[in-house]
């Protein structure tokens, strides 16, 4: 049981100040921008909630929000089951185990724009293995001009990039199951499926919640990889929320609408992460 001690605040203070500096000051600025029409440093007008109205009724934003949700859902549906399967297949001890761990971690350690570059090269029909083989097999494939090809490539790229994280999380969750459980299952002659369903899956629950949360958040703010790979195209087919926002803020320098958009974006993330977090801690308590 933890001791009640408000002096512990002194230990947290450095973190609080550091994160507050990087989070609260910018957040306040975003709020300030979002209610004004800003031309330059000295010329700005208070416009109330006009930008919010404009942003909330902007079809471009609706489209990219919809795309974003579809993308995040696809990512979760593919990566979570695949990650569990991979984790179940990983060797448990010995040299092989650490070798597999390192290989799995490689994609996580590659800068995001390089991930984009790798797939940009890999998918090209003229110099990339994937594009070249598909085309020579008679399947017409071009991620730069065909919408569905672009989507599939972005999805495969994300699976390639992040499934390892899910697998490694599940792997560490599986290691936490005592051997006794498996021995008991062996005595009962339980099938592999029964072992998975009744021993491994329940134990993975909390780890999976973390995995789902991290994957949802990160896929929801994906920017660099599709930016490098497809540049958001063809058309707007792979333009996700972050990219629409960055275009607005940096490209067109529409500070007000971009700030209002940022806050709406942040509120969505805040709600979803709060739901996940509550589910997680609630889960902890009932256990």
């Amino acid at each position: 049981m933890k001791v009640q001690n408000n002096k512990a605040w002194w230990l947290v203070l450095p973190v609080f100040l550091l994160v507050a500096f990087s989070a609260i000051v910018p957040m306040m600025t975003v709020v300030n921008y979002s209610v004004q029409d800003i031309f330059d440093h000295s010329t700005r007008y208070f416009v109330g909630v006009d930008w919010y109205k404009q942003v909330l009724q902007d079809t471009r934003l609706h489209d990219s929000l919809l795309r974003q949700f579809i993308f995040s859902a696809c990512v979760l549906l593919i990566e979570i089951p695949l990650g569990i399967v991979i984790a179940l297949c990983m060797p448990t001890k010995g040299r092989m185990a650490s070798l597999v761990l390192i290989v799995l971690a490689i994609p996580l350690l590659i800068p995001w724009n390089v991930v984009g570059t790798i797939w940009q090269i890999f998918g090209r029909a003229d110099i990339g293995l994937l594009g070249w083989s598909l085309n020579s097999l008679g399947i017409s494939y071009n991620y730069a001009s065909n919408t569905s090809d672009a989507w599939v490539t972005v999805l495969i790229m994300d699976v390639w990039h992040w499934t390892s994280l899910v697998a490694l999380l599940c792997y560490s969750g599986l290691r936490a199951i005592p051997d006794v459980y498996y021995q008991a299952a062996r005595i009962d002659r339980a099938s592999d499926w029964a072992v998975f369903r009744h021993i491994q899956l329940p134990k993975l629950k909390s780890v999976l919640l973390i995995a789902v949360m991290l994957r949802f958040m990160d896929s929801f703010m994906i920017y660099t990889e599709p930016f490098v790979l497809t540049g958001g195209g063809p058309g707007n087919a792979t333009t996700f929320l972050s990219q629409t926002l960055t275009q607005m803020a940096i490209g067109q320098f529409d500070l007000g609408p971009a700030a209002a958009f940022s806050l709406v974006y942040f509120l969505i993330i805040l709600l979803v992460s709060w739901l996940f977090y509550t589910a997680m801690t609630h889960n902890d308590k009932t256990r």
Binding site: S22, A23, V30, M217, Y223, L241, T246, A249, I250, L263
Partner: peptide, 13 residues
């Protein structure tokens, strides 16, 4: 929540 905030939101400020 700061781990989850999209960096794009904080870009400009």
């Amino acid at each position: 929540t700061n781990r989850m905030a999209p960096p794009a939101v904080f870009l400009l400020p």
